[in-house]
Amino acid sequence: MVRLVSAFRFPRRFALPAGFTAAALAVLFAFAGCFVRETVFRNTRPLMGTLVEIAVVQRDEARAYAALRDAFSEMERIEGVMSAHREDSELSRLNREGYPGPVAVSPELFEIVQKGIEWSRNTQGAFDISVGPLLKLWPLYRAEKILPTDDAVAEALQAVGWQKVLLDSGGQTIGFRVPGMALDLGGIAKGYAIDRAVQELREAGIRSALVNAGGDLYAMGRKPDGSAWRVGVQHPRRKGELIAVLEAQDVAVVTSGDYERYFLKDGRRYSHIVDPRTGFTARGTASVTVVGPNATDADALATGVLVLGPEEGLRLVETLPGFEVAILSEAAEGSGLKFTASSGFRRYFRVDEAFDDRVP
């Protein structure tokens, strides 16, 4: 998770006040020396299974709230198209009818599915939008935590694989090669919704804003005092503590981790991120923070890197212009976390000197 931080001094260990929750991104606005006529207007709504906060810098209150309304409306619309949890969504209809299919879909859904498949190919299947059958097996949101059997996982894997998704750009249709398939856009749709909200704000004449969806965000422009937005990367094992701070301007910052949605059983952690190649929850990597030019790609990349792990994930990011990454993985010795970063990461982030390549 990433947080907006407002302290003007950079503390050595980034300790946050007691009670500072990690359940959702907390944005603290402290604008010393703000311009007299510019104000930050913000609103928060529950969307896409999280809390979304949008803040805009504007002189005119009516214009600011109109822009906020339009941005939220756009995100709500996208949720109605791409949610796998709403029976009335376009994605749910595709999942019901994709086999034997094909199904005619909207240009927007076709584009995101196509983008998701591109990232599936780029990550060699570590990110895969066809992971739906596997997600249904794991009891993340069920009271009784009964783990799936190896046979159940093996059966579900027969209906997983981006190569089994059939795209016809001419007819703008999507179909499935085998029965039982189901797409899940949870690893890319939230980023896309953030980008669409940013576009709505720009079209409304907003030049500075922050769109924050439960820890994944896009920072546009600068704060009223002329400084960049300050974004903190949370320690995945210590609530309220940061490991790095970014001064963000016109950039997306997305974190994927195993510490917000997970359950423990028999002393083992099971997160909401499933490795589509094995069918089991991803292990070994606690969090991945991606900095990139847009939230859609950063969202998919963060999930893919978490599944790939630090070595393969870092190699991938180093081939992608405009993207930087920080990876926190379980240390081989079993204590603490290993900190791995791309070559340009420290140009963006100020990392706690005490951490270096090891995070206690």
Rank of each mutant, 00 (worst) to 15 (best):
A213M: 13
A213G: 14
A213S: 13
A213D: 07
A213N: 12
G214D: 02
G214Q: 08
G214A: 11
G214V: 06
G215P: 11
D216V: 05
D216R: 05
L217A: 06
L217Y: 03
L217E: 05
Y218F: 15
G221N: 05
R222S: 03
R222H: 08
K223T: 01
K223H: 06
P224K: 08
P224I: 02
P224N: 10
D225L: 04
D225P: 08
G226Q: 00
G226M: 01
S227W: 00
S227H: 02
S227K: 02
S227E: 07
A228R: 00
W229Q: 00
W229K: 00
R230N: 14
R230M: 13
V231E: 01
V231F: 04
V231Q: 02
V231K: 01
G232E: 10
G232K: 06
G232N: 09
G232Y: 12
V233S: 07
V233A: 11
V233N: 03
Q234Y: 06
Q234R: 14
Q234W: 09
H235T: 05
H235V: 08
H235R: 04
H235G: 06
R237A: 14
R237F: 02
R237V: 09
R238H: 13
R238E: 11
K239M: 07
K239C: 01
K239Q: 11
G240S: 06
G240F: 04
G240C: 06
E241I: 11
E241S: 12
L242M: 09
I243D: 05
A244D: 06
A244V: 04
A244E: 06
A244S: 11
V245Y: 10
V245C: 10
V245P: 08
V245K: 03
L246D: 02
L246V: 15
L246K: 04
L246R: 03
L246G: 04
E247D: 13
A248N: 04
A248G: 12
A248H: 01
A248M: 13
Q249G: 07
D250I: 07
D250V: 05
V251N: 00
V251M: 12
V251I: 14
A252S: 15
V253Y: 04
V254A: 06
T255H: 04
S256Y: 04
S256M: 02
G257N: 13
G257Y: 11
G257P: 07
D258T: 13
D258S: 15
Y259D: 10
Y259M: 06
E260N: 14
E260Q: 14
Y262N: 07
Y262G: 04
F263R: 04
F263Y: 15
L264Y: 13
K265N: 03
K265Y: 12
K265P: 04
K265F: 06
D266W: 11
D266R: 08
G267P: 10
R268W: 05
R269V: 05
R269F: 09
R269H: 10
R269C: 11
Y270I: 00
Y270L: 01
Y270W: 08
S271V: 09
H272A: 13
H272D: 14
H272C: 14
I273P: 01
V274H: 08
V274C: 05
D275P: 10
D275L: 10
P276T: 03
P276K: 01
R277Q: 10
R277V: 02
T278N: 12
T278S: 15
T278E: 08
T278G: 12
T278P: 05
